[in-house]
Design a protein around this nucleic acid. Structure first.
Lengths: 248, 248
DNA sequence: TTCGACATTTGATCTCGATCAAATACAGTC
DNA sequence: GACTGTATTTGATCGAGATCAAATGTCGAA
């Protein structure tokens, strides 16, 4: 995820404590003012629904804090998560009035929202904005394709290991931790949400977590806090090749 | 897929027989000339590899004819298709030197290629080009998310029915056929490639095809030609809600 | 027309993850 | 601290799809 850390460093930019540099890396100050004019913050509690599939959504947003998920549901209740949004990720589609997926706060979430219609206008008059959104969308497409490999071909154990390593990696980049052999982080999802992410049942998720713990690949402090004593060992369980499948 | 038919009508535009209007809906003639200057055509035979994962690719392209696939492979040989490109679809990433997936010609394919580096320059100086690419990429992301639901939660039978209806729909839009109750089309993929698309084995694909035929949902003429006597009946097998899950 | 190389179908069996069921842990709240 | 509701773990069993194996098209080349 080459642009992820870039987006984060931009977010840390002193000129822009309100982190919408995530969507606007190269904005001049007058453009930032225009963004400021159409922006507002919203906070959601863990478990709260941000928007239902089919709802009109009159804003797009940048995730500032917390984790949100996009989920599809079939009539009979089968659910599949199709997007997991972490800080600096973008939510919404400028061109589209209504959402296609249920958007839910997995943890407490803070969004930096931009009113949709004027934001769309801003895109049209600010070339690098659409270029930035294109980059972010392409990264998201790459992530979706990794995810498709996971859903279509990986075993339950590989799915869990892959999920843990994805979260660990993003968490480490949020904290700017690098090259540590040991990693520790909190799971942002319940076992049920993990199951929806991975195309499994929550029982299978629980069993495989227990198995990884039994085999010493992970340690659990409480239900949500994970310690990975040896990152390499976890990577070996993912089924991915050593370099994580990332080509430069 | 709201932009699909738009792209196609643009492709048919008399001013632009060389169908790159697929990537450039609103280009003025001087911009078209710049595109012309960096474009060339390449033809690939069915089964031929267009690029291996990790290869440098010095062009991006628009699919003019035929079908190409993007596939990920694990070390032990498990394969998952992660992209299926039909006429008017875009191939490649302007910003990235090398491909992340194996790109293969599923049928005979004709590409309209643009040299990558100058194309990237063109994007930067032509705002609506990146807006157009953003739209196309967002549509592709939507398709990837539908696909994730299929991979994670659908039964083998639902997967096959969904795949057939996806191909039927795109084929119908290519031929500008509308509202027919009966549909007929050729499968662009082998059973093995279908299995890679659907996260199944080729045996399961074959069995479910036979089952759908036995149950009168489809008819087969030869191995590749499909007749759908009742489109509604096929839709009922997909597990999707009646409107195809598309929110307007 | 026959041969050979594939693609596809069909059959028999096995296995991983789903399903059904129950026990346990845990965080609030009174 | 006891109680309640929810999240998680663990157990027992089942079944859809994988795997292994063989038969059956099918199409082009000789």
């Amino acid at each position: 995820m080459p642009n992820r850390s870039l987006a984060l460093s931009e977010m840390a930019c002193a000129d822009c404590p309100i982190r919408h540099r995530a969507v606007c890396a190269r904005c001049e100050s007058d453009e930032l003012e225009k963004l400021d004019a159409i922006k507002y913050y919203r906070r959601f509690e863990a478990g709260q629904t941000i928007a239902w599939a089919g709802d009109k959504m009159d804003f797009v947003a940048s995730v500032v804090e917390g984790v949100a998920s996009l989920t599809q549901t079939m009539e009979d209740g089968r659910r599949q998560m199709v997007g997991l949004l972490l800080p600096s990720d973008f939510l919404g589609r400028p061109n589209r009035e209504s959402v296609s997926y249920d958007v839910t706060a997995a943890t407490d979430v803070m969004l930096c929202c931009f009113r949709r219609v004027p934001f769309q206008g801003l895109i049209e008059e600010t070339p690098h904005l659409s270029q930035r959104l294109l980059e972010m969308t392409l990264d998201e497409l790459d992530a979706a394709r990794e995810w498709m490999l996971l859903l279509g071909r990986k075993t339950a154990r590989e799915k869990i290991a892959s999920f843990l390593s994805i979260i660990a990696r993003r968490d480490a980049s949020l904290k700017n931790a690098k090259n540590a052999t040991e990693l520790a982080f909190d799971l942002p999802l319940t076992r049920e949400a993990m199951a929806d992410y991975l195309g499994l049942t929550l029982e299978t998720v629980s069993r495989q977590m227990s198995a990884l713990k039994r085999d010493g690949v992970i340690e659990l402090k409480g239900k949500r806090h994970i310690i990975v004593p040896d990152v390499e060992a976890l990577m070996d369980e993912t089924g991915d090749d050593a370099d994580g499948g990332v080509y430069i």
